[in-house]
Nucleic acid binder design. Structure first.
Lengths: 155, 155
DNA sequence: GGTGAAAATCAATCGGC
DNA sequence: GCCGATTGATTTTCACC
């Protein structure tokens, strides 16, 4: 992990709020020249601190996906089991977040599926089929309460 | 909510993977001209389907923030209480996600704090101080198991 | 780390189909 | 609703201080 100074942290804060802000704007807001700012952004990208940029999508009505919070408890927690679980999680884009947790549940997953049938498939074919899984507990989201707009147009 | 066709869904899928893909690339991948593609992206932004673009940040070591999954149970669930809770959640950027849930816990929050002291402050001053909160259950993440890089350079 | 300038790419608009 | 061309921004890469 590379060292970060206050300006790097400010760049990260701003890009988390608006990943499509122009480099010129970003540079002005952190008080750097455009070239110095771009050099820092590239360094953050290449070191993996910035691991990507994502559009925040917000569908409602019949298009709305199911969002399910899934707690997974494993029978065993050897490095090998954890690695295999995580490798499987990475292969399934419906598993949008996956955290190794303290406490009783070993993994916490946020799963997004277009519909209930797809979620059932993920549940039975992927999650329940993982080696060493002893318990799966799913909670369903009714709606995202923080779905407010960050940015609408480039200007 | 606007109607989406297959190309709109493909645009959303691609922009969730790489929000900084150029419009020219995006257009080529969905099989549209650049101007037609841009018109669709603007429509998705203006309708709120795309609510923003965010850099995915991935810090480890001493810079790593605490990620805490918090389940909140309310005593009452009137519209008024829910609205006030959600308004308060929106005011605190450390609350990065907030879902209204089915089942026993009413809200599910993902909280990110620079350190334990900040998390304690959020816990006591914000979460516990909300009206009608009867139970708060926090689970701590050890690490993000899906922190793989999506994109490193513009090219 | 900063400046300035050049080249390439891109966004954004407009007229036409 | 889509295409193609034009115009103005933006990104990106230089060489240099």
């Amino acid at each position: 992990m590379i060292a970060l100074d206050a300006r790097d942290r400010e760049i990260l804060r701003l890009l988390r709020l608006d990943a499509r802000m122009s480099n010129a704007d970003l540079a002005a807001q952190v008080g750097l020249s455009a070239s110095a700012c771009l050099r820092r952004v590239r360094r953050l990208e290449e070191s993996g601190v910035i691991r990507g940029y994502a559009a925040l999508v917000n569908l409602s009505g019949p298009e709305a996906p199911m969002t399910v919070m899934v707690e997974i408890t494993l029978e065993r927690q050897t490095e090998d089991h954890l690695s295999r679980f995580e490798a499987a999680a990475r292969r399934h884009p419906e598993i949008r977040e996956c955290y190794l947790m303290t406490g009783s549940a070993d993994y916490f997953l946020k799963v997004e599926a277009p519909n209930a049938a797809d979620f059932e498939r993920i549940h039975t074919e992927i999650l329940a089929a993982m080696p060493g899984v002893s318990r799966i507990h799913s909670s369903f989201a009714i709606r995202n309460a923080l779905a407010t707009r960050t940015r609408t147009r480039r200007n």
